[in-house]
Design a protein around this nucleic acid. Structure first.
Lengths: 152, 152
DNA sequence: TTGCTATATTTCGTATACGAACTATCCATA
DNA sequence: TATGGATAGTTCGTATACGAAATATAGCAA
């Protein structure tokens, strides 16, 4: 950091990796600070928000929507159900699927949620729009390269 | 995404949030693919790498270095110890501290590790250096703002 | 010396997270 | 119609992750 010589791309990539690591930690902490007051965990809030769209979802839908495995979603829904925030109902036609819905309490709580991520998003707004755009583009490009590598 | 109107900074910030979410997931998967073959988890590899510097560390040091709580580090070290990869030794002077060291096996394994993160870092190198620099700068600025908010 | 406070590690309880295995059900087809 | 393959949800085992509490020890002050 003290040296003024040009950094190699390898060094820059490594540095960016830890920068991303850092902001993920910090942002999770920031979101949790909001949520602790309400007594929800971050994944629980994410699931509530996903359900708030109105259309009911299966565990599989939730997993896809919230970027977690169906088995993980099952656990989160278990705990939300215990708190009376969501409701499970087996589909009448296809008895394999279980629909998950917000209860009245769940909907009320979801509406009162400081939109999770808002805190994070608000902080990012100190950056100029052009820079935000570049970051989005760059992150997506990097993710795409990684996903491509994965296939091989 | 279809509309061509200028996006608000709020929208951009939200988009960047999910872009970061995405690359974190993808990169963890990519690293795990490397590690599964060896039989290590990502946190275990991170701890081994931290210990590879040569100087022994306490659980607290490890936590700071690897960005986890001391209690979490304790658990990771427990499992590494069970596999004979690290070694615990209580300090003779201050009997509260426990030094953690790589064993010969641990060192050998660490050296054979595809440097975790390398995969990720290599993928990022498709991006131009200038862009990488901007991202690092931007991510750090955003993290700093969040940390500042946290203090209030 | 005695006692108080601070510190290092560990233990404990709860909640993710992942992937494999299990159960129930659906569906195409022989 | 009987059945094997696919699919949805869940359960299970293991490993993080976090924070509070417990334990042991250090070091200072009365």
């Amino acid at each position: 950091m003290v040296s003024t010589r040009t950094k190699t791309k390898t060094e820059l990539a490594t540095e960016l990796t830890s920068a991303i690591h850092r902001i993920v930690k910090v942002s999770k902490r920031a979101m949790r600070a909001d949520l602790d007051r309400i007594g929800l965990t971050l994944p629980q809030a994410i699931v509530l928000n996903a359900l708030a769209s109105g259309r009911r979802m299966s565990a599989r839908d939730l997993g896809r929507e919230c970027d977690m495995l169906a088995s993980t979603a099952t656990g989160v829904v278990d705990r939300l159900e215990q708190h009376g925030l969501v409701h499970r109902e087996r589909d009448a036609d296809d008895r394999r699927v279980v629909w998950i819905d917000l209860t009245a309490e769940g909907r009320a709580l979801q509406e009162s949620l400081p939109q999770f991520g808002t805190h994070f998003a608000r902080a990012l707004q100190v950056l100029p729009a052009r820079e935000l755009e570049q970051m989005i583009e760059a992150v997506h490009r990097a993710a795409a390269v990684l996903e491509e590598e994965e296939g091989r």
